[in-house]
Design a protein around this nucleic acid. Structure first.
Lengths: 103, 103
DNA sequence: AGTTCTTTTCGAGAGGTCTCGAATAAACGC
DNA sequence: GCGTTTATTCGAGACCTCTCGAAAAGAACT
């Protein structure tokens, strides 16, 4: 009953709210994830080198996905991540960049 | 022992973090407060016409003050509020405006 | 089939947030 | 002094978040 089985749900960009984005990025670990996706491109969950437990990281990826910040899909045993930057920038111009530039 | 007696504490702008600002603005009621301060200038707490209990409003003003977003001082029986926009914009260029423009 | 790798879900603990009503207090006007 | 206005603190309820370890599942490989 455990493990990786739930279908991956991604919100439509139109349904993403400012509250969603701000709450998602109001966490340093999640900002690091987003920053790394911008700097080094799409990557599997296990390649972020962050000092948190795997289950904690999983929680942050889920938060980012459900907030509409990232898109995830499975490739073999890895789960890939990409930032939905074009969509986000259309919906909230400059928001992600300005937040990331702020610290 | 209750009432308005605590000394008003305001963080130095250098001690304000991005997390502080994002968490403060990740609430629609607080964004409305900030928007009104920009649109109509410094005002006492009672003049915002928001659909929440007075104690809830007080909680939001305190959040904004402790996050470094607003400055408060007392004038007679009113408590005045001003947005620390110049300071915020020096520390986090464009951040507040971009967030407010996003919704 | 069994092992390893990758990642998730579950359960739990500590702590934070939003909301309200009731009680309280300071300042002002009569 | 007394009542009114303005705004706060306290206490409580409901809910959400970050963190972890343990258990579990799917994919790839032998």
């Amino acid at each position: 009953m455990l493990g990786r089985w739930t279908p991956l749900s991604h919100p439509e960009i139109a349904d993403v709210t400012v509250d969603d984005v701000l709450r998602a990025l109001a966490d340093p670990t999640r900002r690091k994830i987003v920053r790394l996706l911008i700097a080094e491109g799409d990557r599997p969950c296990g390649t972020f080198g962050l000092p948190v437990a795997a289950s904690t990281l999983s929680h942050h990826f889920r938060s980012l996905r459900e907030a509409g910040l990232i898109r995830q899909w499975d490739e073999g045993r890895k789960r890939m991540n990409t930032l939905r930057l074009d969509e986000l920038d259309t919906r909230f111009p400059g928001l992600v960049d300005t937040i990331l530039a702020a610290d």
